[in-house]
Design a protein around this nucleic acid. Sequence first.
DNA 1: CGGTGTGAAGCCTTTCACAGCA
DNA 2: TGCTGTGAAAGGCTTCACACCG
Lengths: 224, 224
Amino acid sequence: MNPRIPEATVSRLPVYLRALLEAAETHVLTLSSEALAERTGVNAAQVRKDLSHLGSYGTRGVGYDVEYLVSQISRHLGLDRDRRVAIVGVGNLGQALAHYHGFPARGFRISAAFDADPEKIGQPIGDTVIRPVEELVSVVRRENVVIGLITTPPAVAQEVADRLVLAGVTSILNFAPTLIRVPVHVALRKVDLAIELQILSYYEQSSAVDPGTHDGGGLAAMGS
Amino acid sequence: MNPRIPEATVSRLPVYLRALLEAAETHVLTLSSEALAERTGVNAAQVRKDLSHLGSYGTRGVGYDVEYLVSQISRHLGLDRDRRVAIVGVGNLGQALAHYHGFPARGFRISAAFDADPEKIGQPIGDTVIRPVEELVSVVRRENVVIGLITTPPAVAQEVADRLVLAGVTSILNFAPTLIRVPVHVALRKVDLAIELQILSYYEQSSAVDPGTHDGGGLAAMGS
DNA sequence: CGGTGTGAAGCCTTTCACAGCA
DNA sequence: TGCTGTGAAAGGCTTCACACCG
């Protein structure tokens, strides 16, 4: 049923969710695992096994009720309540994230943004204003931010992570191309754009065919 | 030795490469698997097994020669020659990618950029100029672009992918939050920012500890 | 009948443990 | 002696195949 959902399944739940929401927009009421597989690029057996981890939400001979499954996946992912997010480092990438439509649509609210450049301080960004990094800990604490996005140069990424952790953040998404370490109770993921290109480069030159995906399993770097 | 390197290993090679280049900068001549593990957050046994897929490049009792290993990994990843890259969709994310320092440092040259907005056409970006998407196929062909980055809205991502494939691109990195399909001979990876946050959200609320990484294994959506 | 839910098989990945070489 | 390279073990993920239910 639910005691612990496999990592690989968790990483696919948002994919199903998006497909279900798109189906709902065109008033599709029900989807079979086959149909969901078609819309997500995942194998149908995989879809069924994944969804079975959430409980028995399908109807045999019919499929899955779109609206109900949306609510169940949302609940399991914790998307049924809003999450405060802080962005540290407002370069182009930080800007892009601040204006990304997909975030508020899933309950992620950009509540604070920080930068070290005095020129940028005070500039509006989304619903907030760019603040100096010196205020990071106090503002993050006050605003109850739980997720931090690090889009700084790699040299300061670890220090920023330390401050975020100190301020009580429980999840960090690191875009800086460097390894950062956080306490075990903090969830950490990374997105590394240069690495993605290098992986593609391998499959291109080797004429191989399957470069994998970005959101598969694996172990995160943890502990301090 | 080399006939085919496991997918999981390929996705870690760029990580080792970065650590090795950093070590080289501080004039470290040799690194043990233990030391490389420390710098990358990967288990030492894993490091050795991964590197053994490239060949026997270590020295027992000593470790790996940094410079030599850099050249070997670069060669295996195909980073020993330049690759032309095109960016389609010059919003904030496209801008961020165009100015990303990590790309030219690994031999990826942004040779073309396209956008549908007439206002943006002609604006300089990096070493090139923003062109209308209508010119995509001809320019990509002429410039021998082999990698395409899709940073458009999801609604047009599939069409853009089709054009890139038509123009002869062999690898695509998709940032648009939608499934795209390409012929089997084209390597495809995706980076989905909203999905990363949703995965974090799961581990945050469940107080679980290991949210995985972005570059683990898994199958890519392929075929048309 | 159609489609879910799931044991079982197969594959891939990680980790262990140690033989063997510099 | 120290550290690599690698069989073997262990664990996890995907896919198959089908019992079973609506």
